[in-house]
Design a binder for these strands. Sequence first.
DNA 1: CCTCATTTGTGCGTATGTATC
DNA 2: TGATACATACGCACAAATGAG
Lengths: 261, 261
Amino acid sequence: MIKSSDDFMTVADGVDDADDGREIARGGGISAWRQIADDIEADISAGRFPAGAQLPTEAQLATRFAVNRHTVRRGLSELAVRGLVRATQGRGTFVEARPIRYPIGPRTRFSEIVSRAGREAGGRLLGSAVVAADARTAAALGVAEGAPVIRLDTLRSADGTPISLGSGFFPLPRFERFGDAYLAYGSITGALASRGVDDYRRLETRISARPASAEEAASLDLAPGRLLLAVDSINVDGDGTPIQFTRALFAADRTEIVVES
Amino acid sequence: MIKSSDDFMTVADGVDDADDGREIARGGGISAWRQIADDIEADISAGRFPAGAQLPTEAQLATRFAVNRHTVRRGLSELAVRGLVRATQGRGTFVEARPIRYPIGPRTRFSEIVSRAGREAGGRLLGSAVVAADARTAAALGVAEGAPVIRLDTLRSADGTPISLGSGFFPLPRFERFGDAYLAYGSITGALASRGVDDYRRLETRISARPASAEEAASLDLAPGRLLLAVDSINVDGDGTPIQFTRALFAADRTEIVVES
DNA sequence: CCTCATTTGTGCGTATGTATC
DNA sequence: TGATACATACGCACAAATGAG
């Protein structure tokens, strides 16, 4: 076999990888890239590649499976879409961590949830601004389209791992300078309490799924194109007045949403 | 430019595709496949490729954009993951239909939902069997692990389009021969009523997202690897007794789940 | 039923770009 | 700066599914 320039390995490296050349059944109805993906997935499931571990390089895998590097890449991309591994240019391909649960219910508070999951809560304000309400936001908050609302972008994480990227919209006369309140109290719940909202509940939640854009992936520390759960929700206060419209993006492979009726 | 065998076109075809060679900015920081994906997406959004329409073949797109067919395929695969298009071997690549809503709430009934969305309800029993309850099912139904339960596999569709692929588990002394009841009444709700359950509600719903397996994709008439919303739910009767544990898979790009609290 | 052209799917080899260390 | 490793792109070839005939 003639090696491509990419697959070239030094003689020193060559001597100790003659060991485990995995068998790929050619022409058996199952494509080579799928067999490779399944094989690597089995290694991950069995713990032979623990979470955080670096996989062999694409070139090494290509020689082990006796296929072209493109074929390895096709298999790895499958595992990447499913959130099992993640490739970073110039560094390598690494095994991703396992998902945690993220319950959403009528009384959901983020800080409660992460503590319930036995993890450490974390929320960071990315920015805050006064913007004009678009149609969806206006309808949710019961204000006129184009009316000014406060927008708060937050990144929520658990154990240092980003979990959700959220944009919250709050009606304006009531929640003036709400970004400062959030910074002062460290949580949406606390900031709302400082504005006299000591109870709120979720009125409606819409859930869809889509791949992450490049920016979203960067914020959530995901590889671009990974699956997101998009959760749009409306919170109302004790009187049923809408106080918050939120669009939250969850890394689908780190999250399971629980709805308790 | 030397054409590959794949890209070869007859002279007759060649004369009328000299028109719209789209511009791809090379070396401008944005990869060619992404520009192609964006360009085709814009065409779809603008209605230049309406839903159901067949896209030009990969070879034609390759000549139009003056790139290799692989580069076109990379762009198309991006659109396919996002549910905008779907490729079928031997036929071509087609624009997919837009999503519908699928509300989930305490009083969710499938037939109500699709009629509310102005579509026609449809449910088909794929099979039914008595199986041993696994840990998750046993916990949900409040039976011992390994206890016999009835399993019902159903495919639900709207307007002929498959929407969800579901497995329902029912505790056994109570729902003996439940498959026959489903066939007789044509719906879960009707079959439950025939067993004396005239009211039931959803206790808990768990939502996650993942790509479809080959079989799931086939059942749902999806291209393999497309996004699924996986919804696990527990239904209880008026007394709060669990009567049904369901795992439903929705095509994420045809569905938006609405939770009403 | 078979054949054949069309179209997407898979795989190889090569080359070069780009980020990381 | 150089070496490493993933990302992009071209060209070629053949497999496999579809549909027309």
